[in-house]
């Protein structure tokens, strides 16, 4: 929508292009271990951006996005099994993605209609419960094979190692998430959602179609998350209920966004990078302390920098500008 955001500057375009070139070049210079880390940052950064499509604009903070992550993975796994081995792997992945998106779309609409009527913590907990139910159901009913899981075929592209291939797939996924977020933020939908986030009743009174907007954001966010679940499972080569319906995935998406800055594009990705590097490299040998550190970071961020690192930097910059303006006026 015009009038709300400054146009993207040539400096921002340039920086983005530079980052992209760097990201494309990385797999040809980095070690497999470094690439696996980068993979995770791309995937979970992308998922955190997808979570922000709803949670970043509004206070509808889903504590159960693992539901869609798992739903997508299971949809693709079940379809892959039906298709049988004669279908090429790449085609299976594409069909699996499409099927996962369709199933998640339907499920997200069905869940959203009651759940989006709840506000604040009630929404958060309802989503948490929804994710738990899906996880339990997938394990309980034999048709879903949640407890045993599926083995997924190995995707091969000549000239690329597996780790490189999935690096590029995750990179594309992240870029799609970023693209959607940026387009959405600048659209009527994004402005309407921002208003819903600040005061839903007033937004409705001013003519913002709140129900439709919330539903749209929720569904897009859910479908992207499902895509992430499918790609993740293919990168592992197998899946069970315990690899995808993970409460820690739901909560990490919030944590990453919180660390970087909720409602920004770069924030969730920066947050994912910091937390993944912190737990896997800095504390790589101290597995025992991961939860302790994660918890401490979460508490510290909420208490000291609720707008995340990006918010912190912005506030500091604004304060500096204000003081220079005052000094200028005084002299």
């Amino acid at each position: 929508m015009r009038g709300f955001h400054k146009p993207i500057s040539s400096r921002q375009w340039g920086l983005s292009a530079l980052l992209l070139v760097g990201a494309v070049a990385l797999p040809f210079v980095a070690s497999p271990f470094e690439l696996r880390l980068a993979q995770q940052i791309l995937l979970f950064g992308g998922l955190a951006v997808a979570w922000n499509l709803l949670g970043g604009f509004t206070t509808y903070w889903s504590f159960g996005h693992a539901a869609f992550f798992g739903l997508g993975a299971f949809a693709a796994g079940l379809l892959g099994q039906q298709l049988g081995p004669e279908v090429p792997v790449a085609l299976r992945l594409v069909l699996g993605l499409l099927f996962a998106m369709a199933v998640t779309l339907a499920a997200a609409v069905a869940v959203a209609l009651p759940v989006l009527r709840l506000r604040g913590i009630y929404f958060a907990i309802a989503m948490l419960a929804f994710a738990q139910i899906l996880g339990e159901v997938s394990k309980t009913f034999d048709v879903f094979q949640g407890a045993i899981g599926f083995t997924l075929p190995i995707l091969k592209v000549p000239g690329l190692a597996k780790v490189q291939l999935f690096y590029f797939l995750f990179l594309v996924f992240l870029m799609v998430c970023i693209g959607l977020f940026v387009v959405m933020r600048r659209s009527r939908l994004g402005v309407g959602l921002t208003c819903i986030g600040q005061d839903e009743d007033t937004a409705a009174m001013l003519g913002v179609p709140t129900e439709r907007y919330k539903l749209t954001a929720f569904v897009i966010s859910a479908v992207l998350t499902a895509v992430g679940g499918v790609l993740y499972s293919y990168s592992l080569g197998f899946m069970t209920a315990d690899t995808v319906f993970r409460i820690d995935i739901s909560l990490n998406l919030i944590l990453y966004s919180m660390v970087g800055g909720i409602g920004t594009v770069a924030g969730p990705i920066i947050g994912a990078a910091i937390m993944i590097l912190l737990t896997q490299v800095v504390l790589g040998d101290l597995l025992d302390l991961h939860m302790l550190v994660t918890g401490a970071v979460l508490v510290a961020m909420v208490t000291l920098a609720p707008k995340g690192l990006i918010g912190l930097v912005r506030d500091m910059r604004r304060r500096r500008e204000e003081t220079t303006v005052e000094e200028g006026a005084a002299s």
Binding site: T59, M258, L289, L292, G295, A296, V299, V302, T303
Partner: peptide
């Protein structure tokens, strides 16, 4: 007055305490 912050803080506390129990 932020319900979300209290939700996140208490979640952080639970992670820390759980880790201490494991240790």
């Amino acid at each position: 007055g932020s319900l979300m912050s209290s939700l996140l803080i208490t979640f952080g506390v639970s992670l820390m305490l759980r880790d201490l129990i494991i240790l």
